[in-house]
Amino acid sequence: MYIGCHLSVAKGYKKAAQAALDIGANVFQFFSRNPRGSSYKNFDMADVQEMKKVLRQNNFGPLLAHAPYILNLGSHKKNIYGMAKMILKEDYKRLNDISIPYFTFHPGNHVGKEIEYGIQRITDALNEIITGEESTMLLLETMSGKGTELGRNFEEIKNIIDGVKYSELVGVCLDTCHIYSAGYDIVNDLDGVLDEFDNVIGLEKLKAIHLNDSMVEYGSNKDRHAKIGEGTLGLETFKNIINQPALKSLPFYLETPNELDGHKEEIELLKNMYEEYI
């Protein structure tokens, strides 16, 4: 089972890997730069190599980088759109240079310009950014559908992927809180939701899971993460998700409102529900 959480790399990548080990994790997610700004630090390549040694020695799964929240590739505003493209392009190259397998981002908002317009803006941007020579895969995150968010349903995700020339380098990161809030009933019909995903997008495109409980009700279109087992999804749902044959080999990344000690407890809880450990 590949299970971890979001960790800060502000004090170094090796320290983040050690922090993951300390809480029983064997994967982790990190921001590609300041999550609410545009600043970033250049990689310390010696530190990156030390991190990779820790990963190899402890059989880690794939790391996941997360783009900053400020990006909006669906925007009609030239400055916002241009900044989003610049940041994603810079970070995609940097992450590819150090062989980070996955890089996820929120697709964007059309801000009243209609869904088709926003999707076209996103695909145009990705076609500028992806050269076809990369090894890092860009993952579109499934969204809750608040406001004019794009990626609120599988059809929108598919339409984005289909518009990208090098679509083999684009996949999906499924957020459990988001899709439940978007109207996919993974509590009562997980298999049905996965069948729909497979029919619309294809399960081969699903590369990572953001494992989050939800503070809000089904179909609310709100994004409010809760600790595992303390929200509207409930423990049984997470037991079903992590043991579902189509999902159980994927990496799971917690984004729950917890400090490291809380994530450690969640990881232990999930491992105890994972069939390999029972």
Rank of each mutant, 00 (worst) to 15 (best):
L211T: 13
V172M: 03
E236D: 15
E168P: 00
L233E: 02
A182Y: 04
L174F: 03
I179N: 07
L247Q: 08
E236Q: 13
K248N: 12
I186A: 04
E155G: 01
L247D: 05
C177T: 11
A226H: 11
D185L: 05
V164D: 06
V200H: 02
K222F: 03
D162C: 00
D213K: 08
L194R: 13
A246G: 01
K239E: 15
I201P: 05
K165D: 02
F197A: 09
H225D: 04
Y184H: 10
H210P: 12
E168T: 11
V170E: 10
I161R: 02
D189Q: 09
L235K: 13
A246S: 14
A208M: 05
L169V: 03
N243S: 11
I161L: 09
M215P: 00
I160N: 03
L233P: 02
Y218W: 02
F238C: 07
I241K: 04
R224F: 00
D185I: 07
E204F: 00
R224I: 03
D191C: 06
A226Q: 15
C177V: 06
G192A: 07
F197I: 14
K207H: 12
E204Y: 04
V164R: 05
C173S: 11
K239D: 03
G231S: 10
T232S: 14
D189I: 12
I157G: 04
V193M: 08
N243H: 06
L169M: 12
L233V: 12
K158L: 04
V200T: 14
S220I: 08
C177E: 11
L233W: 09
K248Y: 09
D195S: 15
G234L: 06
L211W: 10
A208V: 13
I186W: 00
G231D: 08
E204M: 02
G229P: 07
L194T: 12
V193Q: 09
